[in-house]
Design a protein around this nucleic acid. Structure first.
Lengths: 197, 197
DNA sequence: TGTACATCAGTGAACGCGCGTTCACTGATGTAC
DNA sequence: TGTACATCAGTGAACGCGCGTTCACTGATGTAC
């Protein structure tokens, strides 16, 4: 079948988006090329017309997920600012929720894949790092202007957020899981607000 | 070959310890039963005389790694107390180091496997949770007595530590990686020390 | 004390299966005449 | 306007390989006589 001139590009995007979802849900290694293509409504044979290897799709999926996350983050910040609410509190409270804990496929790819990304090839980690740097800039921009070391605080806040979400997901006891989430909120706000140091 | 009466138990322990190391280095899913047994100097056929499934070994390896971590943690605290240093600072600073970042096989299994553990069966996560609770108790005991909500703070501190170490491992740029580690130290200490809230 | 046998930790071939990747093919459409 | 052909996104069988798991077997030692 011959298709319109944007058709292939659209299919490509569809595979990347489906992969971003699947990877976050089941992990990168657990998800095969067959599953990935099936999720996009295709058969596996066409995969290598779009990506030179599974690793290249991993890279693209991480970049796509990162971009989407930043857009969401920026949206939360803008909305909070428009309504006179604290933008830091807005992003922290919307990140550490039960919904986010229970729907990794729709959420943050760093929380979902953090320990796995560290074991991927340098090129993949470079793409990840690039996205992460931008995300840190956005978090830093949500901090009160009076606060020093905004980038470093953004690093620490994000560390707390992904760590807490991962623990909350791994913990089998729901009370403890909830407590970890609550503790994460308190601590992240504290890191972002404390004017000393 | 017939062996002494403790022989099998010793072999079992050897496999569990080797697995704990390998899992942290390469991930649980990436490591096959053949590799695991080879690391312990055995062939794969005997595996099921020791474990009813790979998942059972995962559970045992997580429990073993958790126990070892707690012993190390307690050692750091005792040493710091004996020398009149702050025990919280001792554990935070010994956790967030370049060495720990670069040697996941010898380090914290939560940082190395966090996002993977969340996808394992309930029984495995229950064993993990049990160990984690004890670890949180030890971290809480390192906090100044004047501080309220010690358990919640321990949760947040540990979240920050594992999140920062994971990011530091995933980031390809060494300057940024170092900055994340430093930011994690500052934040973890701040969470543990701030007497308000 | 010497021989026959039971034990059982560890061996290695084999099982079905899914992995990432390759490739000859299909067939609807756009283009050339 | 109608026909012949080139294009190329997507198909599905096949590749070698490693996975988790099973099982008949080995052979050094402890026990029974």
């Amino acid at each position: 079948m011959r298709y319109g001139k944007d058709h292939k590009e659209e299919t490509h995007k569809r595979v990347v988006d489906a992969a971003a979802r699947r990877f976050r849900k089941d992990g990168i290694e657990s998800t095969g090329v067959v599953d990935l293509m099936a999720d996009a409504g295709l058969t596996h044979g066409g995969f290598y017309a779009h990506f030179s290897s599974k690793e290249m799709l991993v890279k693209e999926a991480l970049v796509a997920a990162s971009m989407k996350s930043r857009a969401h983050l920026q949206g939360q910040i803008d909305e909070a600012r428009a309504e006179g609410r604290d933008p830091l509190e807005a992003i922290v409270r919307s990140y550490l929720t039960i919904t986010h804990r229970d729907r990794p496929d729709r959420g943050c790819s760093v929380a979902a894949l953090g320990s796995e990304i560290a074991r991927h090839p340098r090129k993949t980690r470079e793409a990840f790092t690039e996205g992460l740097e931008k995300t840190m800039g956005i978090i830093a921009s949500a901090l009160p202007e009076a606060v020093p070391n905004r980038t470093e605080r953004a690093y620490a806040i994000f560390s707390t957020l992904i760590g807490a979400l991962q623990l909350a997901r791994a913990i089998s006891d729901s009370t403890m899981s909830q407590a970890v989430i609550d503790a994460g909120v308190t601590a992240a706000l504290q890191i972002g607000r404390c004017t000393s140091t």
